[in-house]
Protein backbone atom coordinates (compact mmCIF):
# COMPACT_ATOMS: atom_id res chain seq x y z
CA UNK A 1 0.00 0.00 0.00
CA UNK A 2 2.37 2.72 -1.16
CA UNK A 3 2.58 5.66 -3.54
CA UNK A 4 5.47 7.21 -5.43
CA UNK A 5 6.01 10.89 -4.68
CA UNK A 6 7.89 12.82 -7.37
CA UNK A 7 10.07 15.53 -5.85
CA UNK A 8 10.95 18.61 -7.95
CA UNK A 9 14.61 19.55 -8.35
CA UNK A 10 14.18 22.56 -6.01
CA UNK A 11 13.52 20.23 -3.04
CA UNK A 12 16.03 17.50 -3.76
CA UNK A 13 18.71 18.89 -1.47
CA UNK A 14 16.28 17.89 1.30
CA UNK A 15 15.88 14.33 -0.05
CA UNK A 16 19.57 13.64 -0.55
CA UNK A 17 19.17 14.14 -4.27
CA UNK A 18 16.32 11.63 -4.65
CA UNK A 19 13.67 12.51 -7.26
CA UNK A 20 11.21 9.85 -6.04
CA UNK A 21 10.20 9.05 -2.47
CA UNK A 22 7.93 6.12 -1.45
CA UNK A 23 5.17 6.91 1.03
CA UNK A 24 2.10 5.08 2.41
CA UNK A 25 -1.12 5.52 0.47
CA UNK A 26 -3.63 7.90 2.09
CA UNK A 27 -4.67 11.53 2.16
CA UNK A 28 -2.15 14.08 0.85
CA UNK A 29 -1.88 15.69 4.28
CA UNK A 30 -0.65 12.36 5.74
CA UNK A 31 1.76 11.91 2.84
CA UNK A 32 3.28 15.32 3.57
CA UNK A 33 3.65 14.31 7.26
CA UNK A 34 5.43 11.14 6.23
CA UNK A 35 7.70 13.09 3.84
CA UNK A 36 8.57 15.39 6.73
CA UNK A 37 9.34 12.35 8.90
CA UNK A 38 11.67 10.97 6.25
CA UNK A 39 13.20 14.29 5.18
CA UNK A 40 12.99 16.99 7.79
CA UNK A 41 12.19 20.49 6.53
CA UNK A 42 10.10 19.53 3.55
CA UNK A 43 6.68 20.31 5.08
CA UNK A 44 7.34 24.00 5.64
CA UNK A 45 8.42 24.30 2.04
CA UNK A 46 5.11 22.88 0.84
CA UNK A 47 2.71 24.38 3.38
CA UNK A 48 2.02 27.82 4.77
CA UNK A 49 -0.37 28.10 7.74
CA UNK A 50 -1.50 24.55 7.11
CA UNK A 51 -2.47 25.26 3.49
CA UNK A 52 -0.65 24.32 0.32
CA UNK A 53 1.58 27.28 -0.71
CA UNK A 54 -0.02 29.14 -3.59
CA UNK A 55 2.84 28.50 -6.02
CA UNK A 56 2.88 24.75 -5.45
CA UNK A 57 0.66 22.30 -7.25
CA UNK A 58 0.21 18.66 -6.25
CA UNK A 59 -1.15 16.16 -8.73
CA UNK A 60 -2.33 12.58 -8.16
CA UNK A 61 -1.96 10.67 -11.42
CA UNK A 62 -2.01 13.99 -13.24
CA UNK A 63 -5.13 15.38 -11.48
CA UNK A 64 -4.67 18.66 -9.62
CA UNK A 65 -5.74 18.11 -5.98
CA UNK A 66 -7.25 21.62 -5.98
CA UNK A 67 -9.94 20.17 -8.26
CA UNK A 68 -10.51 17.33 -5.77
CA UNK A 69 -10.54 17.66 -1.97
CA UNK A 70 -7.28 19.59 -1.61
CA UNK A 71 -5.02 18.18 1.11
CA UNK A 72 -7.76 15.68 2.08
CA UNK A 73 -7.61 14.06 -1.39
CA UNK A 74 -6.81 10.34 -1.13
CA UNK A 75 -3.86 8.88 -3.04
CA UNK A 76 -4.67 5.22 -3.64
CA UNK A 77 -2.15 2.38 -3.58
CA UNK A 78 0.12 2.50 -6.60
CA UNK A 79 -0.67 6.07 -7.59
CA UNK A 80 1.87 8.69 -8.53
CA UNK A 81 1.91 11.93 -6.60
CA UNK A 82 3.73 14.83 -8.30
CA UNK A 83 4.87 17.97 -6.50
CA UNK A 84 5.29 20.64 -9.17
CA UNK A 85 6.06 24.34 -8.92
CA UNK A 86 3.38 26.52 -10.56
CA UNK A 87 4.71 27.91 -13.82
CA UNK A 88 2.94 30.40 -15.98
CA UNK A 89 2.80 29.35 -19.59
CA UNK A 90 1.85 30.55 -23.02
Amino acid sequence: MSVKVRIPSQLRQLTGGEGVVECKAGPVSDIIKELEGQHSGIAERLLENGELRRFINIYINGEDIRFEDGLATQAADGSEVSVVPAVAGG
Binding site: P8, S9, G19, V84, V87, G89
Partner: peptide, 25 residues
Protein backbone atom coordinates in the same frame (compact mmCIF):
# COMPACT_ATOMS: atom_id res chain seq x y z
CA UNK B 1 -2.31 22.87 -21.85
CA UNK B 2 -2.12 22.59 -18.07
CA UNK B 3 -1.24 18.90 -18.46
CA UNK B 4 1.45 19.75 -21.01
CA UNK B 5 2.86 22.44 -18.75
CA UNK B 6 2.98 20.10 -15.76
CA UNK B 7 4.73 17.42 -17.83
CA UNK B 8 7.32 19.92 -19.07
CA UNK B 9 7.97 21.20 -15.56
CA UNK B 10 8.66 17.60 -14.53
CA UNK B 11 10.89 16.97 -17.56
CA UNK B 12 12.77 20.19 -16.75
CA UNK B 13 13.72 18.62 -13.41
CA UNK B 14 15.27 15.65 -15.27
CA UNK B 15 16.91 17.12 -18.40
CA UNK B 16 19.46 19.87 -18.78
CA UNK B 17 17.43 21.66 -21.42
CA UNK B 18 16.36 25.28 -21.63
CA UNK B 19 12.58 25.18 -21.37
CA UNK B 20 11.85 28.71 -22.48
CA UNK B 21 8.74 29.07 -20.35
CA UNK B 22 9.97 26.98 -17.42
CA UNK B 23 13.59 27.22 -16.29
CA UNK B 24 14.56 30.28 -18.37
CA UNK B 25 11.16 31.84 -17.86
Amino acid sequence: YDDVNRLCTEIASEKNWAFVNVNVR
